[in-house]
Write a protein that binds this DNA or RNA. Structure first.
Lengths: 156, 156
DNA sequence: CTGACTGCAAATAGTTTGCATGACG
DNA sequence: CGTCATGCAAACTATTTGCAGTCAG
């Protein structure tokens, strides 16, 4: 139910883009990732498999992947652009521990209904949504650390 | 329901911040605006009333206004931070046009149930969530600008 | 072969920080 | 009056662009 390197490569070709080793490795990284990743994140991880790759290439690859509709951009934090795979069926979201950074995935966000309601009410054509829950995981809660809930994110 | 310069100023004082002419003029600008504005937008407009004000001061004023919960930040476009008055001091979210940047607020996200379910399942103590919908507003859709969905691939 | 792709370096845009001066309370 | 705020300049981070060499198709 998810993308494969092959399906992504053929999408690139269909859009007139060439498939290069650098693009392959970036695609592989995005397929592996379970989180939103910034270009710099991807760069760091990809350097292992492909030393000498340039950060510029990551940017350009992300741009064409977005142009092909394969990934989408989110704006999850302070001036920090990040990308995630555009899975419609394997659609998923994250529950993030604000103390230790642990991430838990979940998929059943049940927002389709809300999305439809909003589209009708606002006249918008909604393409995607960004949903993240922030909190403390069990362990951090036990340790009694102060949660870092310093108003950065739209409040709950 | 809506803010006045006075109410904002007293909120600042309550949080231990001082009220200065520069802050007044920034607050005035934000109260006038009905759309979200970037720090640079505010700077440009504010220079008329208060020449010599520094862009840095805008940044710092926005930071403290956010800290007081009076405005909130959105992530509406490519590395372009912008701010809105927080009209409903209650919980709300944004629907953002990825072409023109228009922002629509909504409040009934209905996520409490999902939140409870997730807390039970994951053991997390959820403090807040971040929810943004991205799409095209009616006007931008009419203008026929290419939505970001143009090449969406029916995945394999 | 040839145009598209890469990677370096440099340019640009947006935001933050250090510090001396000035003003709110 | 003391402390916090301002504004300049400079530092930083994120991203884009120019260009010569390289490679996929």
């Amino acid at each position: 139910m998810s993308y494969s390197p092959k399906s992504i490569e053929s999408a690139l070709r269909q859009h007139g883009y060439k498939v290069t080793p650098q693009r392959r490795v970036v695609i592989g990284e995005i397929l592996n990732a379970h989180e939103h990743q910034t270009p710099a994140d991807i760069y760091e991880r990809v350097k292992g498999d492909h030393p000498g790759i340039g950060l510029v290439t990551i940017y350009r690859t992300l741009e064409i992947l977005e142009d092909c509709g394969l990934i989408c951009e989110t704006h999850a934090g302070h001036s920090c652009r990040s990308y995630l795979l555009r899975h419609t069926s394997a659609h998923h979201h994250h529950l993030i521990c604000s103390d230790c950074g642990k991430v838990v995935d979940f998929s059943d966000c049940g927002l389709t209904e809300l999305e439809n309601r909003l589209m009708e009410k606002s006249g918008f054509k909604i393409n995607s949504h960004l949903l993240e829950f922030l909190g403390q995981c069990r362990q951090c809660a036990k340790l009694g650390r102060d949660p870092k809930t310093k108003g950065q994110v739209t409040h709950a």
